[in-house]
Design a protein around this nucleic acid. Sequence first.
RNA 1: GCCCGAGUGGCGUAACUGGCAAACGCGGUGGUCUCAAAAUCCAUUGCCUCACGGCGUGCGGGUUCGAAUCCCGCCUCGGGCACCA
Length: 939
Amino acid sequence: MAEQHAPEFRYTAALAAEIEARWQDRWDAEHTFEAPNPAGPLADVERLAGRPKLFLLDMFPYPSGAGLHVGHPLGYIGTDVFGRFRRMKGYNVLHSIGYDAFGLPAEQYAIETGTHPRVRTEQNIATMRGQLRRLGLAHDQRRSISTADESYYKWTQWIFSQIFNSWYDSEQQRARPIAELIEAFRSGNCSLADGRTWSALSRVEQREVVDAHRLAYIAEAPVNWCPGLGTVLANEEVTSEGRSDRGNYPVFRRSMRQWMLRITAYADRLIDDLDTLDWPDSIKMMQRNWIGRSEGAQIEFPSPAGPIAVFTTRPDTLFGATFMVLAPEHPLVDALTADEWPDDTFPLRTGGHATPAAAVSAYRTQANAKTEIARQVDDRDKTGVFVGTFASNPATATPIPVFVADYVLMGYGTGAIMAVPGQDERDWEFAERYDLPIVRTVQPPDDWDGKAFIGEGTAINSGFLDGLGVDDAKDRIIEWLETNGHGHGAIRYRLRDWLFSRQRYWGEPFPIVYDETGMPIALPDSMLPVTLPDLDDFRPRTLDPNDGDSEPELPLGRVDWWTSVELDLGEGPKRYQRELNVMPQWAGSCWYELRYLDPTNENRFVDPAVERYWMGPQRPGDSGGVDLYVGGVEHAVLHLLYSRFWHKVLFDLGHVSSSEPYHRLFNQGYILEAAFKDEREVYVDAASVRQEPDGTFTAYGLPVTREFGKMGKSLKNAVAPDEIYAEYGADTLRLYEMAMGPFDVSRPWSTRDIVGMYRFLQRLWRNLVDEETGALRVVDTPTDPETHRHLHRTIAGVTADYEALHFNTAIAKIIELNNHLTKLAAADGVLPREVAEPLVLMLAPLTPHVAEELWARLGHPSTLTYERFPEADPALLVDAEIELPVQLSGKVRAHIRVAADADDATIEKAALAAVASHLTTATVKRVIVVPNRLVNVVV
RNA sequence: GCCCGAGUGGCGUAACUGGCAAACGCGGUGGUCUCAAAAUCCAUUGCCUCACGGCGUGCGGGUUCGAAUCCCGCCUCGGGCACCA
């Protein structure tokens, strides 16, 4: 390389590497980035005094063995720059990083490599620590955690026990300890739904009643069974194509007994409290949509098999309900199925079967055969069969036929609908197909040529509702339903309870055992953690990904010595069976930010005083929480919803003072990289692609197409940071990643462009250090006024940019100043200290190693981490004389120089003089003077 | 289909609440230095035109003294949701 003849003291990759290693060692040795707590083992009250706090958080990584690529650390660098800036602004900054070590990715990586997940995970964490250290991130290493450490998951289990041992009081709108519910039952303050008295119940019956109220409960429920992964998945982990988020295997809808967490109890608060958060609107919107609150009414339709309950958001259209539809799985279907077809039943409605029972049975078989995906996406034809029975419309007292159809889903509402073809497009389609009556109950506009009218309008054909608008009609009908006992106003959510158990090995064991009654018992805190047993055969049984009827197998069930245990839970030593499921991927990440605060506490998951200091509300009405949380959008509804839920339970039970975990959320963009597909639509290794003279791309002589995607293994386009370190050093990489574009926007990686940032650092270094001798070129001479003003403008701009996370424009301003100084240094041979020192300090958050080195060469013995960030002198931000453009009807024709404080009349006179030559024929209609901006002469 | 977000030079991008479009970087061109090359430094670089000048922020309209920025109608790309009653 050309570097071999470079001057000895030039800022080269080799020098950068030496500087970087030296400063990283020194920061470690001096514990530079350790943030003091107000209490506990990490306390240092003196260092805390008088400093505002900043709790900075990155979405922590799972320790993959594939190693980092340059796309990974973008967010970490951004938070590091911000944290370093705020330290220099006097803040006590908590910034660390841990590892999300349990769960599918770690386990699957272990399976691929044939190494035990614990061994694999620990190796990977060590590797990642090393890779991240090379970037010079200012993390407090004492606070780093791994979710798979016993000392950590002990508290994950403890929090689960807290959730298990609580119930949701819907009157007070908060979770309360389960003991308070038991006491309320015992004292008679709370009566049982069926009217029995508490003391009349057997112990088992009492436990059943209590268990039905817990926030963590076991239920037979429709679940997403993924045989390809050998486990069930939460709704949030299933893609809209009906496949697993991880691994992209088919997912089957099945009924199974599983652990559930009652997140639905928090639906309203999870929606309402979004208003207290400083989050991107798009993420708030996604959470609101996911929770999917709908307001409407529950209405009961009398039928021979008893009342059929439906949920509707349009109770105002009740008079137009001309038939009903039940999901094939609806429990009332069998009872409603008639023995024979009523007279005059259309052949179309019977599906060609001799009896309703045969028709329903055939239809169910057909519906079952379709996977959930087919029911939702592929086949939107409205099919169904008549069950041979009529229900009654409570408003009109008219008999209406009951159908079974798979366009009604058991999983939403009551699994049954009142069909109002006049005001619902799906019902219209169904009514047309099966020749059912259509009654409009909302007057469409005159020019309406559509079918179902779902818009706003006046009620018609609706008895006492006629003439009312939609909203008034809704209020009126709900009143009527409630008065006449046909139903009531109701709210429904799309959100389901969180399916919380997984049939895997590599996860947190539940702190639960079962006694001889088969009912779950939470282990006392003193018995935590329940350690995950070491298992040689940790692999899930391989199942056919396409066989939805297969049964899950529990890896923990293979450990005979572990599955059954003798314990004294207050009744003397007895045998108990352990829970064999493990917790899902998301459990550990639901509370990790809290553990950073107090990582070594053995008595509590976090000391309340420490939590209050870092996360407590800053003012009345504030939710509190992490000050800035940076991560990708992909966790918009998974992690971010689960985490809020757990945090709110902890808040309700008085364990934390903040009602939300993350006060401000920022989604950094991704680093995109060109990816190439061949004609079979298969990705080819980007390194093998060449660009042809005509601009097209080929790989091994065959044409390929280019697209831009998130950098990573799946697109075969990852760039390793090590290559960049070797060529330019870590500071240049940091600078380049921050300079490429706005922090929240995704942008394509371009190795070619990095050299620009490298040249800038070299130029800056050369301005301060003689490349041949290594001598300092900085002297204590006064700065010329122009440079001095330029410096202060830069300080003001850079400060504002850092504060707003606009790192790219901060860099542009620093480069601009340095370009000016390059001219100065070329002319004078030296640079004034008065400008050199602030320049180095401003650069320090971005490129801390080279900044530390220059700071030391400038004669400062200690780290610049806690130096005050330069302050701009407001007096220097305004020039005495300014240049203003003069427009003639909006086009710039001249420039004038005027005193900054000149009045409008003076400016106007100067402007008219400047454009006089253009004004020979025209007359001036108006002159607009915009202070400090421009002058527009209108002709 | 519905709901968000975004379209600016050859490329990445900048322009605070409407006020000189293109700061900063890459790339290109010419020069300096050198036996030569690299590095460095200097100049230049939106498009059309020899020039005067004109045209330029996805497209078409509008508001305004003035629009990348505001309004209306489209187009394209990215993301989310998707038979949710």
